[in-house]
């Protein structure tokens, strides 16, 4: 429905100044279309709000900055990050004598982009087997995200193997197995209640025997406040370290875009148990902006790697700081 007129939904058309020159318009269309499908409505709404707040005015008064602050808090960037961003913009705006809404938006988008780019550059993986461990709290969308990662790896010609490491939740194994069937990928599994460490052990050895390029491991959703479950995750990690010494290992933390301030607490606690390489921000196809990803990048220096934008295996895009910043403000 919304796809009919992608131009109209294209955030870059609303904020053309954010388009990086090196990006040809051909490929990002899908990215932006997906990302902005749900964001469009709120985007214009806020844009109008901002414009009307500053209409005809060249001076930047406190009300304008308060608006900015609210736009950011409303996008779940968190109080601390929002206040800091507005403070930075306030300084630069005075310096540069900002006179237009567009210019102010650009300044704000620049600051957000900078925070996002400031997170360590995601590790580049060379050829050779890669193991991806997928972790997160309950219901953030780990299993669906794994399907998307699988599809992506397949499209790059990799041979993928999945491991059903969520042996706790009812039918989690079946859920992953169904995705495996749909995607034509083998799933290493044991029964419900089995030791996830044992499943991972099996999977690593199976992957080796089959000459797999990519092993993706699902884990049970666990609230980061539950010590015993976090300890279990630590054990899984130790099994990986011991059994897959010659593999490249990547751990992805899945965060739900609708989550508020708690995302920070999740990222912090998970990082203490397993070294996290990056964040996969899921469920961006609703009205939630996922602004906590900015706070997570800033406070914990965790880069965002992928965005989940739907329920199908293709609904995942690579993260791009500048576009994400633009969409956040929209």
């Amino acid at each position: 429905m919304a796809e009919k007129d992608p131009k109209k939904n294209d955030v870059l058309d609303l904020a053309p100044e954010t388009r990086a020159p090196e990006e040809a318009p051909t490929e990002p269309a899908g990215f932006l279309k997906k990302l902005t499908r749900g964001l469009f409505m709120t985007h214009t709404e806020l844009l109008e709000k901002m414009s009307s707040a500053m209409q005809g005015k060249v001076t930047l008064d406190e009300r304008t900055f308060e608006y900015l602050e609210e736009v950011l808090i409303g996008a779940d960037l968190g109080v601390e990050t929002s206040l800091e961003l507005v403070e930075r913009v306030r300084r630069n705006a005075r310096k540069e004598q900002v006179g237009s809404t567009e210019r102010l938006r650009k300044l704000l988008a620049d600051e957000i982009t900078e925070i996002l780019r400031d997170a360590p550059v995601p590790r580049r993986f060379h050829r050779g087997p890669l193991l991806t461990l997928v972790v997160g709290v309950n219901g953030v969308g780990k299993t669906t995200s794994i399907a998307k990662l699988t599809r992506r790896a397949q499209s790059e010609g990799q041979k993928v193997l999945l491991a059903a490491g969520d042996t706790f939740r009812a039918a989690a194994i079946e859920q992953l197995a169904l995705w495996g069937e749909r995607l034509g990928v083998e799933v290493i599994r044991q029964g419900q209640g089995a030791d996830p460490g044992a499943v991972v052990y099996d999977a690593i050895h199976a992957a080796r025997a089959r000459g797999t390029d990519r092993l993706i491991i699902d884990t049970a959703g666990r609230l980061h406040t539950k010590d015993h479950l976090m300890a279990e995750l630590g054990k899984v990690r130790r099994v990986i370290d011991r059994e897959a010494k010659d593999w490249q290992v990547q751990t992805l933390l899945v965060l739900d875009a609708t989550t508020g301030q708690n995302a920070l607490s999740q990222a912090r606690t998970f990082s203490q148990v397993v070294p996290i390489d990056g964040v996969l921000l899921a469920k961006l196809d609703g009205t939630a902006k996922g602004g906590m990803a900015v706070a997570v990048a800033k406070e914990l220096r965790l880069p965002v790697l992928y965005l989940g934008v739907g329920e199908k295996a293709d609904d995942m895009v690579e993260f791009r700081p500048r576009e994400f910043a633009a969409a956040l403000l929209g």
Binding site: I73, G74, A75, D76, V137, G139, D256, A257, T258, T259, G260, Q261, N262, A263, G286, T287, A288, K289, G291, M292
Partner: peptide, 12 residues
């Protein structure tokens, strides 16, 4: 509803 929901809770 998830108790961890942020500002989006209102909309949904």
């Amino acid at each position: 509803a998830d108790s961890m929901t942020g500002q989006d809770a209102v909309k949904s």
